[in-house]
Design a binder for these strands. Structure first.
Lengths: 342, 342
DNA sequence: GTGAAAGCGCTAACAA
DNA sequence: TTGTTAGCGCTTTCAC
C-alpha cells in the first residue's frame, strides 16, 4: 500500500498539516522541520494521492478531447497538437472517439465519463445546427469545427469560406476555368463541405465563371477511398475539367491517384488543390498544393480558452468565436504560375 | 453546485445509503422506494461524483497510453485501436506523448501525472534494453514495441524477425535478388530496426544471397522525409538494386516517391515492400505491398491484459510476452508473381 | 510555526 | 429493506 500523509507525519514526528505545508510549498515552515519531513517523504517514497486532492479541490487537471476518429490524419494531427498544448499548460488529456456519430456525440456530452475531467474540447461531426441546444452543458466546453455555430460555448475554428475562396482563386489565377470539386454534401449550408463549397462559388462568381453542377462530386465521408470513387465517377461522366478542388487533403489525394491512373498528368492536364495541409500532403507525388488552415493555432487556442474557462468557472463572459488564419501552401500539384498544357 | 447523494436523499426522504443502493443497482430495494429515489435524481439532475467514487474504490476507470507522437500514423492508428478497445471494456484513455525522448519516457514512468489512471500502456522509443529497470513501477504496466525485452512487465508486440523475413522472402520469391533496405539503425540489435534487419538477413542467407552493406540505407527517424533522403543517397551512390524493403511504411512511401521521380518504375524496375500496413498504404500510387503486423490485436490485447492486471492487482503472475500474428498484404508495389522488366 | 479537526462525496460494514 | 457511520487521503480553517 502506498504511503499517505499520515505515514509521513508519523515517521517525521509532526502532524499531517506540517507535511501538507511542506508538500504545497507553504513558506512558513522551519527549515529543520522541512528537512525532516522531506527525509521521511523520501524514505517512504511518498507521492500525494491525486484523487484525494481532486476530491478536495474539485479539479482533476485533466481535460477531455472528443473527436471522430484518431485514425483520420486530420484529427490525429489535431489531437497531437492539443495534447502538446495541454502539457505545456500542465494539463493532461483524455481522448474520446465518437466516430462522427450524432447519437454518440450527444451521449458523450451528457456522459459521466467526462466527470473525470475539468472540461471538454469537442469536435462534432454528426451533430448539426439544430442540435445546438445540446451544447448547453454544465461544464466548461470549447467547440471546434463547422457543424454548429452561435452555440452557448466558445468556438474555435477556421475561416472556411475565405480559405476555400482563396484556394479557388489560386487555381483561377493559374489559368484554370473548369474547376471540379470533390466532397460536396447534398444540400449542406454550414459544415465544412457547405462552407467550402460556398467559398468556391464566391470565387467563381467573382471571376465571372459560371457554376457547373456537373463537375461537382458528392461524397459524404471524407476518406481517401471516397475521393477516389468520386473522381472515377467524374471521369466516367466524361465531363471536362482542368482543375480539382478536393474539399480536404485526403479527398484530393484519392482523386489525384485516380487521375494519374487514368493517364491525366498533374498538374499539366489537371491541377489539384486540397484543404488541411496534412503532413502527408508534402510527400505525395506530386506534392499537394493545399490550404493550411492553422490547426496548430486552433489546438493551442482551444486549450488556453478552455483552461481560462475552467479557471474562471464562475464568471459568465459571453461565448467567443475565435478564427484561425489560413494560407495557401503552394506545391507541385497546383503551382502558382500557369502551366501550358502539352 | 452539483447535487450530491445527500440532496437526493433529502428530497426523496430516504437515507443516502438507499440512494447509493439505487445508483449501484443493489437488488434489495423496494420498487416504490427505488422509484421515489429515481424521481429525485431526475429532478435534481444528480450524477455521481466520480472523483469521490474513485477515492473510495482506489480506481479511476482510466488508463494511460504513452506513445511517441500521435502525428505519426502508426501511433495514431494504434491509439485509435487502444481507445476503442478500452471503451468496449468501459475504460477511458489518457494519452501522453513522449516524442520518443528517453528522458521524457523515464520521467513519465515515475510521474504523478499517471496517478489519475489505474495503469499504463507504454510504447517506448528512446529507452533501450539497459533501461529495463525503469519498467519496475508500482502500478500495472503493459509495454509495447521492440525497445525492451524481458522486463518486469507484460509485453505485447509483433514478430518482427519472422515478419521481416517473410517480407524479404516475398521479394525473393518474385525473383528479386538485389534488395535494398531503408531505415536501418547503426549497430542496433534489438529495436524494430535491428530485428527487422535481422529477419531480412536471415531470408537472404536462406536463399543463398550475399548480404551487401552498400544497399542498406541508414536513417534514425522513420518519417517519410527520411525515407526519401535515404533513397536519394542510395541512388546517388549508383548502386544497383531491384527491390526495396522499407522498414516501415512511411519510409517505403518516401522512398517510392523518390524512385518514381528518378524515373524508376515501381514495381517493374524496383519492387517496394513496407511494414505496418498503414491505412495510407492502400492508397499510394502504386498501392504498397506491406507487412500487416496485427496492430489491432496488439491494441486489444494490451488493453485486456492491462485491465486484468488492474483487476487482479494483488496477484503476482509472472510477466508475459504476447506476440501478434502477421501477414503479408500483397498490393501493387510488389506483386506476388515475377514481373518481367520491359 | 505547528496541530486538531472538519469535510470534499462516496461506499460498505454493521445495525436496526 | 433501510439507516448509521466510519473512513478513502487530502486541504484548510482555526486555534494554540
Amino acid at each position: 500500500m502506498a504511503a499517505t500523509l499520515h505515514d509521513v507525519a508519523r515517521l517525521a514526528g509532526v502532524s499531517i498539516k506540517t507535511v501538507s505545508n511542506v508538500i504545497n510549498d507553504y513558506p512558513h515552515v522551519r527549515p529543520e522541520t522541512r528537512e525532516r519531513v522531506e527525509r521521511a517523504i523520501g524514505e517512504l517514497g511518498y507521492t500525494p494521492n491525486l484523487t484525494a486532492r481532486n476530491l478536495r479541490s474539485g479539479r482533476t487537471g485533466a481535460i477531455a478531447l472528443a473527436i471522430p476518429d484518431l485514425s483520420l490524419s486530420y484529427f490525429a494531427e489535431l489531437a497531437a497538437a492539443v495534447i502538446a498544448a495541454a502539457e505545456d499548460a500542465g494539463a493532461v488529456v483524455l481522448v474520446e472517439q465518437t466516430d462522427g456519430d450524432r447519437d454518440r456525440e450527444i451521449e458523450l456530452l451528457k456522459s459521466q465519463r467526462l466527470k473525470l475531467t475539468d472540461g471538454l474540447i469537442f469536435s462534432p461531426l454528426g451533430m448539426s445546427q439544430e442540435d445546438v441546444a445540446f451544447l448547453d452543458v454544465p461544464y466548461p466546453l470549447v467547440v471546434l469545427g463547422e457543424r454548429i455555430f452561435d452555440g452557448p460555448a466558445d468556438h474555435v475554428t477556421m475561416r472556411n469560406i475565405e480559405a476555400a475562396r482563396a484556394a479557388t482563386e489560386h487555381l483561377i489565377a493559374a489559368g484554370r476555368r473548369r474547376i471540379a470539386v470533390i466532397g460536396a454534401h447534398e444540400g449542406e449550408v454550414i459544415g465544412s463541405a457547405g462552407l467550402r463549397l460556398r467559398g468556391y462559388r464566391e470565387a467563381l462568381a467573382a471571376a465571372g465563371i459560371p457554376f457547373d453542377a456537373d463537375i461537382v462530386g458528392f461524397t459524404t465521408l471524407w476518406h481517401r477511398a471516397n475521393g477516389a470513387t468520386a473522381m472515377r465517377e467524374l471521369l466516367a461522366r466524361g465531363v471536362e475539367f482542368d482543375a480539382v478542388f478536393g474539399l480536404n487533403d485526403t479527398l484530393a489525394l484519392g482523386a489525384m491517384r485516380v487521375l494519374q491512373e487514368a493517364g491525366r498528368r498533374v498538374p499539366d492536364d489537371v491541377a489539384v488543390i486540397g484543404f488541411d495541409d496534412l503532413d502527408e500532403a508534402r510527400y505525395s507525388i506530386p506534392s499537394l498544393t493545399t490550404v493550411h488552415p492553422g490547426q496548430d493555432w486552433i489546438a493551442r487556442t482551444a486549450v488556453t480558452t478552455l483552461l481560462e474557462r475552467i479557471a474562471g468557472a464562475g464568471e459568465a463572459t459571453p461565448p467567443r468565436l475565435l478564427l484561425a488564419d489560413y494560407r495557401i501552401e503552394v506545391r507541385e500539384s497546383a503551382p502558382a504560375v500557369e502551366i501550358s498544357a502539352a
